[in-house]
Design a protein around this nucleic acid. Structure first.
Lengths: 333, 333
DNA sequence: GTTAGCACTCACATGTTGAGAGTGCTAACA
DNA sequence: TGTTAGCACTCTCAACATGTGAGTGCTAAC
């Protein structure tokens, strides 16, 4: 009972057919459809071996076979052929890229939308996580009397702002001095650096510079808030309906479980955090999360011109079209 | 066959029981459960009348009755009793309010999350729509050589920013003059005012002030982009899974349709645009959208201390607990 | 090593039956 | 005239039986 290329070809046929039809594949079907020059009986013997090796299973005693997780894994790692994208698929991707050229915030969203449209799977996408934004520059802009806008620019050149109502209206020159003082004091700090100690220090500084101490608390609070929003990465789920269209989720219990899972943004973040530069494939029970035991996930970091623009994960049934999804993701890398 | 208070009481009993049990209610059930001092036969006659008037229907010839859309309408308008919130319900709402005190952006989100938790329905929420942001102040902050942050403050004191790479690094004094020039030129304009004409005008202005014309295009583009993000209102859908838990959506076709509908952000915006200050109730087929013909929607504008903080819509089966949802919404108004 | 043949298994669709819940109608009663 | 008891009827639903078709495993022959 040793693996050989004939068994491989049969496994490939089973996987391909099962991906397309979602129904157990029998030996006779393969014998008729593929021109292996083998009778159904021979194929039956080979399938029996493949079952013994754990690559396929029978859902019940007298049915055709379906690939097991191990079967998909073998298929993905050794059998699957790289596929080219069709013209329509390509043009959908290109159009998504054009739609929000340069706006990192929604580029990944547009990409995800396009991938959902092409593949008909469910897509989860996140902005690139920058949990290490450091303050580079702070500017206080007078808006209207005591109302000021605090503008914070991080070392990654992301600007964040917060509108703050100060206890006293600062003039333009005071605002300028506040900007200088805050920048000098805080540049290089990250969100986790800013603790309670800073308030005392800042008060001391402000006193020395002849600035009103009352400004300290609201401004520092705003800075923390601004940094926090810089860190919090949005997470999008697109095409949740798509996964419900697959017969493996025709069971309402499963449908509910998966919809619930895809709604928990916090839980999904863990999934997305592990995206690597290469395309990663998780098949069925390889998933840590038991809700996703019947799903496969293909995920990767997406970069445009070397600039990381977010992570993307394609979620479908284990019987998903791995070759297509990989092709789409490779086109976007 | 005229409406009277006895019929009303029977209708109320049917609606209440059906909301709780999701099963057709028979005359005997009512006779036993409620102490109307009537036999099941009498109630049968009254129910027959109610059916004739269109307030209840029988799903099939020999089953109990369920309220029709008209029945729910009558119930909501004339029969339903105002309910008080329980302590737990109240504390959930209060905690949501506390969580993001003052941050309009996520307050409505926190509210929606709390309402979803309390009611177990699906919630759609939007930020308040401000399609009339006007520019009040523009500031160009030098970040790093040619990289500047454009900060735009609107008449509603909302600050927006965009990072722009200019063709040439402006010094701090040039940045200050750019700020003054742009503010003078554009203050009072809204997004829809900024057309192609502005570019020519701005170039002329810049020339007069001795500023490099090359700054015009990137800056104006950034301003438009900033205004656009001020206008685009996010839309959140929370608790999509909840609606799948109701037996009326146990049919996969319906489940898919409703999930698909709730994913289309654009379509939902139309729904949300019509929120009024009072609580509005749309029952079943009163919905324009046929996908929602078996749903009811309760929606309202939400304000905190007179400050509009967004719109919220609660979506459930027509058999939804109108009294509870109304009580929750009234507590938030 | 490959194949034909055959008995066997299992899911699934179809048909049957009985129980239960509820109705409509009729006739009797206050 | 409004209310009620009684009864036949209808419809759903679950449980059970049956037949069909696809597919397997095994054996013996090539």
């Amino acid at each position: 009972m040793t693996m050989n290329s004939r068994k491989m070809r049969i496994l490939e046929a089973i996987v391909n057919d099962y991906i397309a039809l979602a129904e157990p594949i029998g030996s006779r079907t393969i014998a008729k459809k593929y021109d292996f020059g083998l009778s159904s009986a021979t194929i039956r013997n080979e399938m029996s071996d493949l079952e013994g090796m754990g690559y396929i299973t029978a859902p019940h005693a007298s049915s055709g076979r379906i690939p097991s997780d191990a079967g998909y894994r073998l298929y993905v790692d050794r059998v699957m052929k790289r596929r080219r994208l069709s013209r329509e698929e390509k043009s959908l991707l290109v159009r998504a890229l054009q739609r929000e050229e340069g706006q990192a915030r929604s580029l990944i969203k547009e990409m995800a939308r396009a991938v959902a449209l092409i593949t008909n799977y469910t897509i989860v996408a996140t902005e690139p996580v920058n949990d290490a934004h450091k303050i580079k520059l702070i500017q206080v802009v007078v808006v209207d009397g005591p109302v000021v806008a605090l503008v914070l620019i991080t070392d990654l050149n992301v600007a964040k702002n917060q509108v703050v109502v100060l206890p006293k209206a600062p003039g333009h020159s005071v605002a300028a001095r506040l900007s200088t003082a805050l920048t000098a004091m805080l540049s290089g700090s990250a969100a986790h650096d800013l603790g309670g100690l800073y308030n005392d220090m800042a008060r001391h500084h402000f006193r020395e510079m002849g600035l009103d101490e009352a400004y300290v608390d609201p401004l520092l609070a705003a800075i923390q808030a601004a940094l926090r929003t810089a860190d919090s990465s949005e997470i999008y789920t697109i095409g949740m309906k798509n996964i419900l269209d697959f017969p493996e989720f025709a069971d309402l219990q499963k449908a509910r479980a998966i919809v619930g899972r895809l709604e928990e943004k916090e839980g999904l973040l863990g999934l997305m955090a592990q995206c690597c530069d290469e395309i990663g494939i998780i098949i069925g029970a390889e998933n840590e999360d038991s809700t996703l035991k019947e799903c496969s996930i293909i995920r990767a970091k997406i970069s445009i011109n070397g600039q990381p623009c977010g992570n993307i994960a394609i979620i479908g049934p284990t019987r998903m079209d791995y070759a297509q999804v990989v092709a789409v993701l490779q086109a976007t890398l």
